[in-house]
């Protein structure tokens, strides 16, 4: 058991590191446990064009390197590894990483969300064998070969655009008849000559597990039920994310979709535990909103520690 902390932050994406920056500047000496997916989703992106203040954009990994250095400059301590368990039943809260345990008076949960897989079973078996959730990591292996992208949101479009520069052809497979992606991403994807779209279609199987590589996708039209095969060497999944809340089940209130419930700023259902970023946001899910909520969580934690946290509001009502 190590010395008790004032605040532990779990997660090191924009939410966790912004919380760390604010907590460090408030002299709370935060401990950040970065997690296996350190740096968060931005580590897997290329150019981030909507982070305010960078008119020409900034590379996702560069942004996270800067943010990390900035938090460290003010005294945040960042350690590697994954949290294996938390005990929120009493304060100080206990956060365990295997055999090592840490305790703290407040906790900021910023564990984010991870890429969702297809739920076919075969996609995980062929992970790293042609199935990927990260075009910038794995696109290299598909130079001059045909690939598919599954999904219709910004993530899927970004993957398709990135891959179009490497692959011979990129086929986007989407289960609806229109894209959810932002207009600017849609236009960009549609303008690429080697990106094509297959609408109203789901992937029901990926071949070929026996060969240990991807050879084709089995597709099913959601309207007609007709099945077909598309020969590809690689498939990139961009169908959204799932919140990383497994650690908190039974201890913090969750929405039905698995996201953490927060109210009145960053409060969770346990006093002294605050949440920020994608783990509690299934609506906006932007780097800048994650960072903003990380700031809120740090301020809330600081006020909780000093006994000056504002009273929780009961409801929103118009008073005459």
């Amino acid at each position: 058991m190590t010395a008790e902390r004032q605040v532990i932050i779990i997660g090191s994406g924009p939410a966790g590191l912004t919380a760390a920056l604010y907590a460090a500047r408030a002299n709370l000496k935060p401990l950040v446990i970065e997690g296996v997916e350190a740096g968060g989703q931005l580590m897997l992106t290329t150019m981030v064009e909507n982070w305010p203040g960078y008119r020409d954009g900034i590379m996702g990994p560069d942004l996270m390197t800067e943010l990390r250095a900035q938090a460290e400059r003010f005294g945040a301590e960042i350690i590697q590894g994954d949290v294996s368990a938390v005990d929120l039943s009493q304060r100080p809260f206990t956060v365990s990483m295997g055999k090592t345990s840490y305790t703290a008076q407040t906790l900021i949960v910023a564990t984010g969300a991870s890429a969702k897989w297809l739920d076919l079973g075969v996609d995980k078996k062929l992970s790293g064998r042609g199935v990927s959730t990260c075009a910038t990591c794995d696109g290299f292996f598909f130079k001059g070969r045909p690939v598919a992208v599954i999904g219709g949101g910004d993530t899927a479009m970004e993957e398709a655009i990135y891959l179009s520069k490497l692959a011979t052809s990129v086929t986007v497979i989407h289960r609806r008849d229109s894209l959810r992606a932002s207009k600017v991403m849609q236009d960009k994807a549609m303008s690429m000559p080697n990106i094509s779209f297959i609408w109203n279609t789901e992937v029901v199987d990926i071949k070929d597990v026996d060969k240990g590589e991807v050879t084709a996708l089995v597709l099913k039209n959601t309207q007609s039920g007709a099945t077909s095969e598309l020969a590809v060497d690689g498939v990139f999944i961009g169908i959204g994310h799932v919140p990383n809340t497994a650690l908190f089940k039974g201890q913090l209130a969750l929405h039905d979709n698995g996201y953490l419930k927060t109210r009145d700023g960053s409060r969770t259902s346990v006093p002294g535990v605050f949440a920020a970023g994608d783990v509690q946001d299934h609506v906006y899910r932007q780097a800048v909103t994650a960072a903003g909520s990380g700031c809120m969580a740090a301020i809330d934690a600081e006020r909780f520690l000093s006994g000056t946290l504002h009273e929780a509001s009961e409801s929103l009502e118009v008073r005459s």
Binding site: E37, G81, S127, G128, R129, C134, C137, D138, F141, V214
Partner: peptide, 26 residues
Amino acid sequence: MVRGIPTLLLFKDGDLKETVVGLANK
């Protein structure tokens, strides 16, 4: 057949025994 990185392969006496694709904890 490494089609994604990071990938870790573990060999024992020349035989491939383990494949770990993506991030993993220590």
